[in-house]
């Protein structure tokens, strides 16, 4: 660590994970610089979600080390696990909102259960978080009464209310239309600057991710096969990268072949 000029928020070395003997991650090495937006892209089934869940220790990895803020995470140890979870938030693909609690209660819950703040302070902070994400007028509503975009914002409000250093995003744009996708990435970028957390995003929406993030990595078949800036990603001649990046062109070529066959 000391030799590295860059400070990493989270660093992964040789991460392995297999399900029922079927390898999903086969040695992932990655360093996420502090205070950056880092995007991991990759085709479906490449193990992106599993990778992120290993990081958040929802799934324990089979082998490999995870360094958080320079110190190794011992997931067997409850104290270090709690410490990590206090400083890190996870945004689920499904949002995982508490559907029987109101919007305000959803945001207040992590504060209520993990801090000893007085109730008034919790209410103030929760309302503030809602206000920042412009959903404070829905404080008394239930998650099911909100639109998809608002639910996403609520989930983000709940993630940032504890002032985490690291936020992990699992497919934040899955199932959203392009405009909404842009809005979500803009939202992440905006609040990342505002609160200064490190954002690690897993997605397969390449164009938006390239614009919004500081660094990009490509996860394919259980390993990282590219890592660099968005500019480097765009310029890369790596076959998997170019396949993935230029999928539209490939589709065009494929369709052209089909059309000529029809003709």
């Amino acid at each position: 660590m000391g030799t590295s000029s860059q400070k990493f928020a989270i660093q992964v070395e040789g991460l392995h994970k297999a399900f029922n003997g079927k390898p999903v991650l086969t040695g992932v090495d990655l360093g996420v610089p502090s205070g950056s937006i880092f995007t991991v892209v990759g085709p479906s089934g490449a193990g992106k979600s599993v990778f992120l869940k290993c990081l958040a220790n929802i799934i324990p990895p089979d082998a490999g080390r995870i360094l958080f803020d320079g110190s190794e995470l011992a997931f067997g140890d409850r104290v270090s696990q709690l410490e990590f979870r206090r400083r890190c938030s996870f945004l689920f693909q499904s949002n995982a909102l508490f559907d029987s609690l109101t919007t305000l209660e959803n945001v207040a819950l992590p504060l209520e259960q993990t801090t000893s703040l007085p109730n008034k302070e919790i209410r103030k902070r929760s309302l503030e978080a809602l206000k920042q994400l412009e959903i404070d007028e829905y404080a008394g509503h239930y998650p099911a009464q909100l639109s998809g975009g608002m639910q996403k914002r609520l989930a983000l409000a709940r993630a940032i209310v504890t002032q985490p250093e690291l936020v992990l995003f699992d497919e934040p744009t899955a199932g959203l239309d392009p405009l909404r996708r842009n809005a979500v990435f803009a939202m992440i970028a905006k609040y990342q600057r505002q609160f200064g957390f490190t954002a690690l995003i897993v997605t397969h929406d390449v164009p938006e991710a390239l614009v919004a993030s500081d660094r990009v990595a490509l996860l394919n078949q259980g390993r990282i096969c590219f890592e660099g800036t968005p500019a480097e990603f765009s310029a890369s001649t790596h076959s998997v990268v170019s396949d993935f990046r230029d999928s539209a062109a490939a589709l065009q070529r494929e369709l052209a072949v089909i059309r000529t066959a029809d003709a």
Binding site: A56, I58, L82, R85, R86, C88, S89, F90, F92, S94, A96, L97, F98, D99, L109, P110, Q113, T114, T162
Partner: peptide, 16 residues
């Protein structure tokens, strides 16, 4: 709550 990942969400928040 298990099905909709709410329990996992609690855990990732550091809530027991």
């Amino acid at each position: 709550q298990r099905n909709t990942e709410q329990i996992v969400a609690l855990e990732t928040m550091g809530v027991n």
